[in-house]
Amino acid sequence: MAEYLLYGFAQSGNCYKAALYLELAGADWQTRFVDYFNGETRTAEYRRINVMGEAPVLEHGDLRLSQSAVILDYLVERFGRYGWTDGAERREILRWLFWDNHKLTSYTGTYRFLRTFAPATDKAVLEEFRKRAEGAWKVLDTQLGQTPYLAGDRLTIADISACAYLFFEDELGVSWVQYPNIDRWLGRIRAEPRWRHPYALLPGHPVPARK
């Protein structure tokens, strides 16, 4: 058995955040598929794994962690990569990590889910989430016009977190050419030696048949 066990599924950008870190760091890890689309996270059995009923979950020895930001913080502690060198840099990384979770991932992930996976979505609701996602994309593009990575001149967990849903551009219906700084930044991340697309890195693509 691998040293790290990640509960997740391919359509989840939040699961991809943890998976991408593990892969880039060269960790000894494996996945345990979570059948989200057939309701596994709502079962009593899964709630015993994570009371929040969410993925990802990371197991390392006797430790079990949930929430992607907490997992990324722990992996920095374990591997010493993609983290901070001092308190000021840590605060800058956390600033973008929290913004990603609250704004970028929140709006982008919800918009993509409604556009791609929801059986029927009110057009006005979809347009509102698109507008909110575009607002977050503009903030991201502005920052990346000032620094090559979110917290400065090197890849950190802020980038690993913020990029996760943006590799689903076809499902988002966006061309990142419209946001040239995001486009170049995603290209730099894709150029990392161990980078893989979420659908290649995690199990469950295409979406399993409904039971």
Rank of each mutant, 00 (worst) to 15 (best):
L201H: 04
Y82V: 06
D100R: 03
G145T: 12
Q30N: 03
W185S: 01
L63W: 06
M1G: 02
I71N: 11
A200G: 03
A18P: 10
D183E: 15
K123I: 07
S161W: 08
Q30S: 13
A27N: 04
E92N: 05
T142F: 13
A10R: 08
L144A: 10
E59C: 06
I49L: 07
L202I: 13
L114G: 05
L5A: 05
L166M: 13
R188D: 12
F117D: 03
Y111R: 04
V76T: 12
R48L: 13
V34M: 11
Y7T: 05
A158Y: 00
L202M: 15
N38T: 09
Q67R: 12
G135N: 04
W96T: 07
K138D: 08
L5Q: 13
R81A: 15
D159V: 02
G39D: 14
A162F: 00
I49E: 02
T41C: 02
L155E: 06
D170Y: 08
R32C: 02
A209H: 09
T85P: 01
R184L: 09
Y199E: 03
A136W: 05
D35C: 07
R64P: 11
G152L: 06
K211L: 07
T105R: 01
L150Y: 03
H205T: 10
R210K: 15
R112N: 11
G204F: 04
A19G: 11
T105N: 15
R42V: 02
T110K: 14
V76E: 11
Y111I: 05
C15W: 00
D73Q: 14
G53F: 02
I71D: 04
G53V: 01
T85V: 13
L104A: 06
R47V: 02
I93C: 10
D159Q: 03
Q143W: 04
T147W: 01
Q178H: 13
Y74A: 10
G13F: 06
Y74H: 14
V177H: 13
L114T: 10
K131R: 15
Q178N: 14
V207A: 14
L104T: 09
D122E: 15
T43L: 08
W195P: 01
R42F: 13
S106F: 12
R95W: 11
R95Y: 14
A55V: 15
H197V: 00
L150P: 03
A88Q: 12
V70I: 12
G87I: 11
V70H: 02
R90H: 14
W137G: 00
K211R: 15
Y7S: 01
E128Q: 10
F37Y: 13
L5P: 01
T147F: 04
R32W: 03
P148F: 10
G109E: 06
A27C: 11
D122N: 14
D183A: 15
E192P: 07
L201S: 08
E128T: 12
R194F: 02
T31G: 01
H197I: 00
R154M: 07
F33P: 12
D122K: 03
G187S: 13
G152V: 04
C15N: 09
W176C: 08
Y199A: 02
A133T: 09
Y111T: 06
T41R: 05
S175I: 03
A124E: 14
I160Y: 06
W137N: 00
H60D: 14
H205K: 06
K17Y: 02
E92R: 12
R47Q: 12
